[in-house]
Nucleic acid binder design. Structure first.
Length: 809
DNA sequence: GACTAGCGGGG
DNA sequence: GTGTACGCTAGTC
């Protein structure tokens, strides 16, 4: 082969992975030029740091290497260099041990256990990014030889880019509730881009946006063609990592058709962990919008009451969903079988793809800014927790400053940390009850300010009994050296500073301009980061975990929130509830403007970047406290609010799960609504009593009593009997086929001793156990709300004892 | 009280 | 993949 010439080039960096070629690791860079392409870098060696004198490094003859052995690789420490790094504030000479492939690093480290070791559990691609000092979505200028990177010239931040984005959604034939890919076909694949939104299917439907293929196989293949033809860069779905892609994958293999989603004709890969599933497609960026929305909802960046596609769309965009209420999910298979309903089903499908695209367009700018800031790829950012974002940023900065990255804790340490939770946040418990007209303020810049202004960092923390020195002493007595500045306050200060600069910039920009959106997205990302530092210090798996730091933060925090509460009281607001970083004030006779001017007044008096922010106005709310221990310490937050748009915000009530019967969910919802919309306890109680009466007299249909639970394992593999397992086993005896993954819809019937014994698959159940539904479904769900509003179980249960209730009304 | 198991989203 | 990550609740043993 002729020697390739060196050429100068530049492109945008999108993602980094690695592959093995001839026993050596090669970094694979996903780049965007005119199109996406791959660029390879063979000039990067895996390594870790060893705290050992140079001469004593033993020669590694062989290391246990189960994975590597399969590939015929022998882990080797290729060479060793001496390098100075900063550990706990002091410069130290360490050995940099280079290994022949990435997976060899932890293996070789294991062989050298007698020495201290660092940075031996850092993903190779991340190591690469850190050492290069690159950012994603930046322009890399380089010299290449063929597809190989020869020399790096520079990395410069790039202007915003438009990516070829396609959102997709599938519909499946679902005669038994959740479809089973083994039996139930995909009936439609819809997609939406900036230009068009289409539905692929294999039945004739008289709609211009429908393309009818010959069969399911060809429909799936056509979808792959569309990705190729459209040169899709970002492929977006909603819960697509868990549902759509795996489903398409299983159908494709059942049908014997190739699912060529990747740019190289490959399919996709899924990695599953505890609660996280990530699907990757080679040569494109697959983004599942669901975890993003969930994340933003949980941290309060978005106000979302339920995370269904339709609900998320409505609440994020403020628009109506075009097909809302027109299609019942359980009826989809019937619509497919009914010619007259096919057009509506196609519209529904197209609409789902459109809504997914719109949601993505709203949240991706922030995700991209986050990716640039913390050094994780877009796909990684979209599935990360707040702690992982902060950790990634700290790792990059630590590396850049020559500071050793602290090791991840061992499982034992994690357990110990979890058993010993951080205490100290201030909670002013509300008097349980129903309240009108509240204003809620969040105090979220509080903790970042505290961390920065007291130099709180695991490595500025002075040991107990250390001599006199210039230090900040927390209310708990922990002392933090005033200098040098710790890496955590240093990086956090940069984040906070940059954000306040951007906020200034935003004020001067046109709110509808493209620049405004870009700056806003970045400012949003910075805000999330700043607010995540405290949680990161207190997070058991954190590399920078410090109990002393975390509890010092909360201790100082109490001071400021208590100050704010007393100021509010001075201004004659009644402070209903305060927890950690938020306060709930009753407006009473005061106006909204009074609340806002109170906020401004407080903000003027706060040091640094501390800021009280308006979370919202709420016409009504219900508060319940559930004491966790005798002293009322650790009382759980339980409240429900209704905002001015009629949206409900619930904390701690857990309404919407399929493992509660419909009647329990409905009754709890009705009770909450009676309280929030009408402010009426009487109606709430009446709803409960009526429901109990209906249950007692056997008037409730079994559909409302069915509880759905999935069997995550094969029925024979369980250690413990549960109602769903017992119901499933009885059905299996009758010849029903139920295996791993089956959704069990069961009813608690009369016959049997334990709950499990009473459980019957809904279609075989002849009666129901009213006591179970009253005592284990209705009462617990509504008592969560009504118990501390002055009602006891008996008040709700005994319809005949009305006289007892007189005292409450 | 310790332990097991499932929820979320998707149809 | 330089692995094994949530936070909570109900029911069983």
């Amino acid at each position: 082969m002729a020697e390739e010439k060196e050429k100068k080039a530049s492109a945008i960096l999108i993602d980094v992975t690695y592959t093995m070629r001839e026993g050596k690791p090669v970094i694979v860079l996903l780049m965007k030029g005119k199109r996406f392409f791959r660029l390879y870098d063979a000039n990067f060696e895996p390594y870790f740091y060893l705290d050992a004198p140079k001469k004593e490094i033993p020669k590694i003859e062989k290391a246990k290497a189960p994975h590597a052995a399969r590939a015929g690789l022998i882990p080797q420490a290729a060479r060793v260099e001496e390098e100075e790094r900063i550990i706990e504030g002091k410069t130290k000479a360490l050995l940099k041990v280079f290994c022949n492939f990435p997976a060899a690093v932890p293996l070789i480290r294991e062989e050298l256990r007698e020495f201290g070791a660092y940075e031996y559990r850092i993903q190779y691609a991340k190591r690469y990014m850190m050492d290069r000092g690159w950012q994603f979505f930046s322009r890399i200028t380089y010299i290449r030889k063929g597809k190989y990177l020869q020399k790096i010239l520079k990395c410069t931040p790039d202007v915003p880019l438009n990516f070829n984005t396609l959102a997709f959604d599938i519909e499946t034939y679902n005669p038994q509730g959740m479809p089973k890919p083994k039996d139930d076909p995909v009936i439609m694949v819809s997609y939406a881009t900036r230009k068009e939104a289409k539905v692929l299917t294999y039945k004739k439907i008289d709609k211009s946006f429908v393309e009818t293929l010959k069969d399911e196989e060809r429909m799936i293949s056509e979808f792959c063609n569309v990705l190729k033809k459209e040169d899709v860069e970002f492929l977006v779905g909603y819960n697509s990592s868990v549902f759509d892609l795996p489903y398409l994958g299983e159908r494709a293999s059942a049908l014997g058709v190739r699912l060529e989603l990747g740019r190289d004709g490959s399919s996709f890969s899924v990695r599953k962990f505890a609660q996280k599933t990530i699907a990757k497609i080679r040569g494109r960026v697959h983004v599942d919008a669901y975890p993003i929305i969930r994340f933003m909802g949980l941290i309060g960046s978005l106000k979302i009451s339920r995370y269904t596609l339709e609900n998320a769309y409505i609440e994020i965009t403020g628009k109506k969903s075009e097909t809302k209420g027109k299609v019942q999910r359980l009826e989809i298979h019937k619509m497919w079988d009914d010619e007259k309903q096919l057009p509506l089903l196609a519209e529904y499908s197209r609409n789902d793809a459109r809504e997914t695209l719109e949601i993505a367009q709203r949240v991706l700018p922030m995700q991209i800014e986050m990716s640039k800031l913390v050094g994780l790829s877009l796909a990684d950012v979209s599935t990360s927790t707040a702690g992982q974002l902060v950790e990634s940023l700290l790792m990059f900065r630590s590396c850049r400053q020559g500071i050793i990255i602290p090791n991840k804790p061992h499982e034992g340490q994690v357990k110990e940390r979890e058993l010993n939770p951080i205490q100290g946040a201030f909670v002013k418990l509300p008097k349980p009850g129903i309240y009108d007209n509240m204003v809620v303020f969040d105090f979220r810049g509080l903790y970042p300010s505290i961390i920065c202004s007291h130099n709180i960092d695991p490595y500025t923390l002075l040991p107990k009994g250390a001599g006199e020195s210039d230090a900040y002493t927390s209310p708990l007595g922990h002392r933090f050296a005033k200098s040098p500045q710790g890496i955590i306050p240093k990086v956090l200060e940069e984040v906070v500073h940059l954000r306040s600069e951007l906020k200034g910039k935003l004020k001067k920009l046109e709110p509808d301009s493209e620049e405004y959106s870009a700056v806003f997205a970045k400012s949003q990302a910075l805000k999330i980061l700043a607010n995540s530092y405290y949680g990161y210090l207190a997070y058991a798996r954190s590399r920078w975990y410090s109990r002393e730091c975390a509890e010092s933060v909360t201790a100082w925090g109490r001071h400021f929130i208590q100050h704010t509460i007393s100021e509010a009281e001075k201004c004659e607001f009644e402070v209903l509830y305060g927890d950690t970083d938020s306060i709930f004030l009753l407006l009473g006779k005061k106006k909204k403007e009074d609340a806002l001017s109170f906020m401004e007044k407080i903000n003027k008096s706060l040091p640094g970047n501390m800021e009280l922010e308006l979370e919202g106005f709420y016409p009504r709310g219900v508060f319940v406290t559930k004491k966790v221990d005798k002293e009322g310490k650790g009382a759980k937050k339980k409240y429900a609010l209704i905002d001015e748009k009629g949206r409900i915000k619930i904390r701690g009530f857990e309404l919407v799960r399929r493992d509660w019967s419909a009647i329990a969910k409905k009754t709890q919802g009705d009770v909450l609504m009676a309280i929030l919309k009408e402010g009426s306890k009487e109606n709430a109680v009446k709803i409960v009593k009526d429901t109990i009466e209906r249950l007692r007299t056997g008037k409730v249909p079994l559909e409302e009593l069915t509880i759905y639970t999935q069997l995550k394992k094969d029925p024979s593999n369980y250690e413990i009997m549960s109602p769903e397992l017992s119901a499933a086993k009885k059905a299996i005896k009758r010849g029903v086929k139920l295996e791993k993954g089956a959704m069990i819809g069961y009813v608690i019937a009369k016959k049997g001793a334990s709950i499990s014994e009473k459980a019957e698959i809904a279609e075989y159940a002849k009666d129901y156990d009213a006591d179970y539904y009253i005592n284990r479904q209705i009462l617990p769900s509504v008592l969560k709300i009504l118990a501390e509003l002055g009602f006891s179980e008996d008040d709700l249960k005994f319809a005949g004892s009305q006289s007892n209730l007189g005292k409450y009304f």
